[in-house]
Design a protein around this nucleic acid. Sequence first.
DNA 1: TCCGTCGAATAGTGCTTCTG
DNA 2: CAGAAGCACTATTCGACGGA
Length: 299
Amino acid sequence: MKPRLKPRELVLYEYLKRRRSLSKEEIKKYRRLDRGYQGEVLFDQYLERLSSNFLLLKDLWLSHHNRAFQLDHILLFHNTLYIFEIKNYPGEFYFQNEQLYLDSGEEIDNPLIQLRRSKSLLRQLLQQLEWDIPVVAAVVFINPECSLFQTPRNSNIILPTQINRYLRQFENEVPLNPAMHHVMNHLESVQLEHSPYEQLPTYHYNDLKKGIPCTSCDFFITIVEGKKCRCQNCGQSEFVQTAIIRNVEEFMFLFPDERVTSEQIYAWCRLPISLERIRYHLKKHLKSKGIKKGTYYIQ
DNA sequence: TCCGTCGAATAGTGCTTCTG
DNA sequence: CAGAAGCACTATTCGACGGA
């Protein structure tokens, strides 16, 4: 099973939090994204235990009549599609009049409404292609510390304690209809590249702390010993080349429009090593474009 | 056009790992 | 175990740029 990729927004926050302070709003958003991602990874682990009579699509953004919708998990069985929306909320919640509230009484978005919309749009998308495939949808509250009260009956909500029992229904599935491969390939081919609702925080090169963050404690690496560099804070050591390339990837992610030159990366890594050494690794791990002055590197 | 500066390429060095 | 091969790194060379 292909590992689930972290959403771009989450990766961006992880990079930014090491290099500048986040605002309260940014911290809130970062935590929400991280929790969501952890929930999806957790559900992936449940699915890994299932037999192999199904296909799985992860993290698809689709669009039908200009209305975008996201599907965390799509499972394709013999002749049915299952879509699951994962909620990793910790704490206590209750339903009242089709609305979802925090224990404190604050109303939050009802995932059932979002799910209903996704299901409807997916079904329309399939119908347009003349695929008459039933779609089953459910919201999975995956956090073991989540309690839901007054859950509406037949509401397609799966609570943490019900997940295993729910998934057991798939154990005796008949072999997959080969046509489902076409459905999967089609859905993959029409997926949107990014979330249309993605709101990336703004940041500027000059505001970001330069250096290479340690892989285990985020402290900036300052010690180079031979081929390895070491974190002064936790002692974690890493090959200089992997640390540089890791930091180059981060630079490319943060500044996709900037050219990766040896000088640029020399300043970005801020390691006590020569510019030539940086250049050596760039040349080795990336493709160089241009000659002499102005040479830059691409993946 | 000349010349100083900057920056990339390249040849060379020393160390490690592989192989017969 | 010795020589070959590969790798990481450095010193030097060479070319481009730009100001006078």
